[in-house]
C-alpha cells in the first residue's frame, strides 16, 4: 500500500440515489441561467416540478426554500435604496435583485446537480440548454417591462409597487 495514501472514509453519504423523471429535464446549470434571465421565483417553480418528478423530498424542499428566499430577496435592495435616498434608484434595486437571483440560482444548481446526474445515469432524457434558454431569452425581450419586473421581483406585486 502506498505510504502517502490516506483513506478519507465514505464520501458519497450525501449523494442521492438516482431516480428517473418521466419527462426530459433541464440541465442543472440551467437554474443559474434562468435565474439570471427570468428571476429566481419562476426558476424555482420549475425546479419544484423537477423535484416532484424525481420524487426527491430534498430537492422539492430546497426549491420551496430557495423560492421563498428569492421572493423576499428584493426587500434587501429596496430597504437599502430607501435608506440611502428618498427616491430610490430602480436600476440599482433591479441590479442587486438580479445579483441575488443569480446567487440563489447558483445554490439551486449545486443542489439539483446530483439529482439531475442520477436522472441522466438512468438514461432519462435531458433538454438541450438552448431549448430552455432560447424561449426564456426571447420572453425577456418580448414581454412588457412590468411583466418582467413582476417575474424578477414578484414581491413588488404584494407591496403594490
Amino acid at each position: 500500500m502506498r505510504a502517502d495514501f490516506v483513506d478519507p472514509g465514505p464520501v458519497l453519504a450525501r449523494v442521492p440515489n438516482a431516480r428517473r423523471a418521466p419527462f426530459p429535464l433541464m440541465p442543472a446549470v440551467g437554474n443559474m441561467y434562468l435565474a439570471l434571465l427570468v428571476g429566481i421565483v419562476p426558476t424555482m417553480a420549475l425546479l419544484l416540478v423537477t423535484g416532484l418528478a424525481l420524487r426527491s423530498t430534498k430537492l422539492t424542499l430546497a426549491a420551496v426554500g430557495i423560492g421563498v428566499l428569492g421572493f423576499l430577496a428584493p426587500l434587501l435592495p429596496i430597504g437599502v435604496g430607501v435608506a440611502l435616498s428618498d427616491t430610490p434608484n430602480v436600476a440599482f434595486i433591479l441590479f442587486v435583485g438580479r445579483v441575488l437571483s443569480v446567487g440563489l440560482g447558483f445554490v439551486a444548481y449545486k443542489v439539483a446537480l446530483p439529482s439531475i446526474r442520477g436522472h441522466a445515469h438512468l438514461e432519462g432524457a435531458q433538454l438541450p440548454l438552448l431549448y430552455v434558454l432560447g424561449p426564456a431569452f426571447g420572453l425577456l425581450f418580448l414581454l412588457p417591462g412590468e411583466v418582467v419586473l413582476a417575474l424578477v421581483a414578484p414581491i413588488l406585486l404584494v407591496l403594490g409597487g
Binding site: 465514505p10 449523494v15 431516480r19
Partner: peptide, 20 residues
C-alpha cells in the same frame, strides 16, 4: 442502479476484505 451510497458501502467492504 444508481444506489450510490450502498454501492460505496459494498465497494469499501470489498477493499476491507482485500486492501492489497
Amino acid at each position: 442502479l444508481g444506489r450510490y451510497r450502498e454501492a460505496e458501502d459494498a465497494m469499501r467492504r470489498a477493499i476491507e476484505l482485500d486492501p492489497s
